[in-house]
Computed example of a mutant assay.
Amino acid sequence: MQSRLLNLPLSFCCLVGLALPVWAHARVEGTVPAAGAQLSVSPDRIEIRFTESIEPRLSDFKLFNAQEAAITLAREADDGDRRHMSASVPAPLTAGEYRVEWKALSEDGHPVSGEFGFTVSP
């Protein structure tokens, strides 16, 4: 009887451990350009890919130059893939450091946010 009582907490922990991935929030899986990239030419688009679906209408990102001035991007149409968001860079970026600041609403209803940077070299 005592061994059965000891197995009960162990079984519960195993079940909870298997369920944890279901409760995970969206995380960045990859970006274009890659975080920390040193580019010799301006990127023509910015893309963020997530590990799970996000709410596109409630998610966004912005591009800033080294002086913290926002750079206008042309958000690309929703292609039905709810695991990414992207935008075209309408004009070539000049040499310098850039930061992408993003926020997204995970499909599970939790807001997530972050940033990554890249550099355009002459």
Results as ranks from 00 to 15, higher is better:
7 N>M: 09
84 H>E: 09
48 I>V: 13
100 V>S: 00
22 V>L: 04
60 D>V: 08
97 E>Q: 15
45 R>Q: 13
91 A>S: 10
99 R>G: 02
53 S>C: 08
47 E>K: 07
33 P>V: 01
82 R>V: 02
122 P>I: 04
26 A>R: 08
15 L>Y: 05
35 A>I: 01
72 T>L: 05
101 E>R: 08
90 P>G: 08
99 R>H: 02
81 D>P: 05
19 A>Q: 07
35 A>L: 03
97 E>W: 14
47 E>D: 06
32 V>P: 01
35 A>R: 01
59 S>P: 02
6 L>F: 06
11 S>C: 03
107 E>W: 01
55 E>C: 07
35 A>E: 05
62 K>W: 04
10 L>S: 07
122 P>N: 09
36 G>D: 06
103 K>E: 13
35 A>N: 00
6 L>E: 10
57 R>C: 06
104 A>G: 12
102 W>G: 04
103 K>D: 13
90 P>M: 07
112 V>G: 05
46 I>K: 02
34 A>T: 13
118 F>E: 08
92 P>K: 07
75 R>L: 08
17 G>E: 00
32 V>D: 11
20 L>D: 07
115 E>A: 14
91 A>E: 14
55 E>F: 11
94 T>D: 07
12 F>C: 07
67 Q>A: 14
65 N>M: 01
92 P>C: 06
43 P>L: 11
10 L>D: 01
121 S>Q: 13
94 T>H: 09
66 A>Q: 09
119 T>L: 10
108 D>T: 06
11 S>H: 08
88 S>E: 10
1 M>D: 12
78 D>R: 06
11 S>I: 01
81 D>R: 03
42 S>R: 08
116 F>K: 02
19 A>I: 00
49 R>T: 15
87 A>V: 02
44 D>C: 12
49 R>V: 15
82 R>E: 10
103 K>V: 13
27 R>V: 03
59 S>V: 00
3 S>E: 12
42 S>T: 11
68 E>P: 01
49 R>K: 15
83 R>I: 00
42 S>F: 09
98 Y>Q: 07
41 V>A: 14
32 V>C: 00
11 S>E: 03
34 A>H: 11
104 A>T: 01
94 T>W: 02
64 F>E: 05
84 H>C: 03
3 S>P: 14
39 L>T: 05
53 S>H: 08
121 S>H: 12
68 E>W: 08
17 G>H: 06
